[in-house]
Design a protein around this nucleic acid. Structure first.
Length: 215
DNA sequence: TAGGCCATCTGGTCCT
DNA sequence: AGGACCAGATGGCCTA
């Protein structure tokens, strides 16, 4: 399930920055990328746009030339575009790295099992969503039991102890349960087959939940 | 080999 | 003008 068990290969970042399209100039690359999406688009072959296929770039060129600013030479424009693109790429790469860091932090506080299994991005988000929902339900039930008539059926402290704890305990504490008829934390989840809500509050008790229920 | 996941590049759009 | 954000495209890696 996890294609990169040892973590995301972020080391290629710097090297990727310098990576260039073999046999294609920067302008050709820009043209290829600005062309309408097509399966034929290839990273290394921008030659076919050389003639008139680069509408976006030419339009930009026109608007720039038409401005009141001092006209620049093609070379200067090309250099400026290249520089801006490179900076934008760096920022975008950094932004995605930050996003991944946040995702890793989220993984860190989620009870996962086994140790070597790294949740994918979408799994992490779904798991977190359902896990939060389950904890919310646990608290609600605990409040009811505190002021209500019945003894607590859900061990909140046990759920809480899973936070950052041993992933293996999570699986051993709860046994598999059918997800059929499970209550959804949000109606939107029910519309999306992939987003499964955890078990219903009634099943939020020891031996009633499996790790997979949160995915 | 097909499919899933991921990182990266890129242009467009919106905001400051 | 420049930065942030977004979505599409692409190629690499891995697994069933």
């Amino acid at each position: 399930m996890a294609p990169h068990p040892s973590g995301a290969p972020t080391v290629q970042g710097t090297y990727e920055t310098e990576r260039s399209f073999p046999g294609a100039s920067d302008d050709e690359r820009a043209c290829a990328a600005s062309a309408p999406p097509s399966p034929a688009r290839s990273r290394g072959n921008g030659a076919e746009e050389e003639g008139g296929g680069c509408r976006g770039a030419s339009r930009k060129l026109r608007t720039r030339r038409g401005g009141r600013s001092r006209p620049k030479s093609e070379l200067a424009l090309s250099k400026q575009r290249r520089s801006r693109r490179k900076k934008a790429n760096d920022r975008e790469r950094n932004r995605m790295h930050n996003l991944n860091s946040a995702l890793d932090a989220l993984r860190g506080v989620l009870p996962t099992f086994p140790d070597d299994a790294k949740l994918t991005k979408i799994e992490t988000l779904r798991f977190a969503h359902n896990y939060i929902w389950a904890l919310t339900q646990a608290l609600r039930i605990a409040d009811h039991s505190l002021y209500g008539l019945e003894a607590p059926a859900l061990p909140c402290e046990e759920l809480g102890s899973q936070d950052g704890g041993s992933p293996g305990d999570w699986g051993s504490l709860y046994s598999p349960v059918s997800q059929a008829g499970s209550l959804s934390p949000a109606a939107s989840l029910e519309e999306r087959p992939g987003l499964q809500a955890p078990a219903s509050p009634a099943s939020l008790r020891p031996g009633a939940l499996a790790f997979s229920d949160f995915l």
